[in-house]
């Protein structure tokens, strides 16, 4: 070793001193950065989520987060897991609810956000929050205008008992859509577009009846 003279010979005290010293320094640096950037990061995240909600619920200008607890919707607290976002327009009228859903896609898990309007009994908007689908093929679910137009008015009306969907949401082969509750698939992205249908089908099946039943909660809160 040519560098013997520059690196001190060790005894336990030196080793301990070095490790504790570096550990303290590193800890300090990390905590300072974390504290310094946290407000900005949280603001950016909230902003991104807000923009996504505005996209899936056209015409709204304000949102509020709700959590579903013990069979009722309540204004969400910080530690709540399942959250839906109610959207209101300029006059404070309740326009619909944005719901997050996720499921297995072609490559990895896809996370989506969609807007549901209890008045229209329809899904009114759709946005991909996160996907790793194949660029140029599977990622058409995010950008293909024809595919996205499926979600401006996708029927999710309830049956007579109001406890399930009249017709489950499903993806059909490209160009064969005949019913308003079907999603027209994408050629070349069959699996990805079918995955969206499945994710949405499962989520609407679960949430639409609950939200429809509890929609008064969202309307009440709007008038406060």
């Amino acid at each position: 070793m040519t560098n013997q003279e520059t690196i001190p010979t060790a005894n336990s005290f030196h080793m301990l001193r070095a490790m504790v010293g570096i550990g303290t320094l590193c800890g300090l640096l990390i905590v300072l950065t974390y504290e310094g950037t946290l407000p900005r990061i949280e603001q950016l995240r909230a902003q991104a989520l807000q923009e996504a909600i505005f996209k899936v619920l056209p015409g709204i200008s304000d949102t509020r987060a709700y959590a579903y607890k013990d069979g009722a919707f309540q204004l969400a607290a910080d530690d709540d897991q399942v959250i839906v976002y109610a959207g209101y327009d300029d006059t404070g009228t309740f326009k619909g609810v944005a719901i997050e859903a996720s499921g297995q896609g072609y490559a990895d898990v896809i996370r989506i956000l969609y807007g549901y309007s209890p008045d229209k009994l329809k899904v009114v908007g759709f946005y991909v929050l996160e996907s790793k689908e194949t660029p140029g093929l599977g990622d058409k679910i995010e950008i293909d205008p024809q595919f996205l137009s499926n979600f401006s008015a996708l029927e999710v009306s309830l049956n007579k008992g109001l406890d399930a969907l009249e017709n489950a949401v499903i993806t059909v082969k490209s160009g064969t859509k005949v019913n308003p509750w079907e999603i027209d698939g994408i050629t070349g992205a069959t699996i990805s577009s079918r995955a969206i249908g499945e994710i949405m089908g499962r989520s609407t099946e679960e949430w639409v009846p609950i939200i429809y039943k509890n929609q008064e909660v969202f309307k009440l809160k709007a008038n406060e």
Binding site: Q104, G105, Y106, T134, I191, A195
Partner: peptide, 8 residues
């Protein structure tokens, strides 16, 4: 890439 879609 041919294995894609197996996981779903």
């Amino acid at each position: 890439m041919g294995f894609s879609g197996l996981g779903s």
